[in-house]
């Protein structure tokens, strides 16, 4: 694309003061990529293992229930809910609402608090159940 190098470009990340809306925008891409590759590959592995038989499923099951497996599962729980809450926020922004500075900041922050809270709730409940 032909571009006159003398004309100014719009300022990028480095020039703005950081705010939650910028963090959430970056997190939306990062968590989406993590879900797409991490979540996608594990979902395929899980299904193919189940369709292949008990031996293949056992290999998956042992990996999934190792400490590293739980770490990945907790991580994917957070990336899913962060992407989901941020996605719901995008649906609202699509209608043209929620761009006022204060409102925008509030709901950007809410997606982070929401995703952390739901992740904590789910895995807290899983842990509590395992204690019985």
């Amino acid at each position: 694309m032909s571009r006159n190098a003398a004309r100014p470009l719009s300022p990028h990340l480095s020039i703005w003061r950081w705010g939650p809306h910028m963090l959430v925008s970056i997190l939306h891409r990062a968590t989406g990529t993590a879900n797409a590759i991490g979540g996608g590959v594990l979902f395929i592995w899980w299904l193919v293992a189940a369709a292949s038989g008990p031996a293949a499923y056992d290999t998956f099951y042992r990996a999934a229930t190792s400490w590293f497996g739980y770490l990945v599962a907790i991580g994917l729980t957070w990336t899913f809910f962060q992407h989901m809450f941020s996605g719901v926020r995008h649906f609202v922004l699509d209608t043209g609402a929620g761009y006022e500075l204060k409102t925008n900041r509030t709901w950007a922050t809410a997606t982070i608090i929401g995703s952390l809270a739901v992740t904590l709730l789910i895995w807290g409940a899983v842990y509590a159940r395992s204690m019985h």
């Binding site: 996608g40 590959v41 979902f43 395929i44 299904l47 193919v48 189940a50 369709a51």
Partner: peptide, 11 residues
């Protein structure tokens, strides 16, 4: 990936 997953579910 989608094909592998769907085939496995159906199987």
């Amino acid at each position: 990936g989608g094909a592998l997953a769907i085939f496995s579910i159906l199987k």
